[in-house]
Amino acid sequence: MQIDQKKIDEAVSTIIGYGGTHILDCVGCGACSAVCPGVKAGFDVLCRKLIRKIVTGHLEEIIEETSSWGCQACNRCTEVCPQGVRPQEVVFAFRRYQANELAFSTSSITSQMNLFETGHAVFTDPKANRKKVGLPEEPPTSAYNEQAQKEIQTLMNNSSMGELGLF
């Protein structure tokens, strides 16, 4: 393994910039990985290992890594971390890095489009089921509310997400 300080600095500042603010506080104790359901299930570049990759400057090398998308955001790691690293925030910062480099599964683009169009990440026509259980066919959410959809579209268009051209 090569140690390239420039790459380390870049990797760390990229992750901090995406919200993994406390990454440098990590002492590598491994408690986060011990409790991580993702690591347990076999997504192993999460928590401690992901942090190690970043703080050793190997950010670009793992850009295609899918482990980060197996993170449940459950925050067990945040709870047990003795150093206040909030590893989940590091994982999500890494996801943001991947997403902004368009290095993520195309299947997730549907969710972004759904969110943009209906305000719901997951959208299935609910009318039949709602009628069946005695509820009005249209829920009071953004799904059937044009004004709300416009608001969400404005927010998303004006955001850095809007620049990625996903929707």
Partner: peptide, 20 residues
């Protein structure tokens, strides 16, 4: 090497160690 993340209580007063 690696901090224990937690323990689960099992039947028979045993404990499951979740470590790394």
């Amino acid at each position: 090497k690696g901090k224990v993340g937690g323990l689960d209580m099992l039947a028979g007063d045993k404990l499951r160690v979740n470590a790394y």
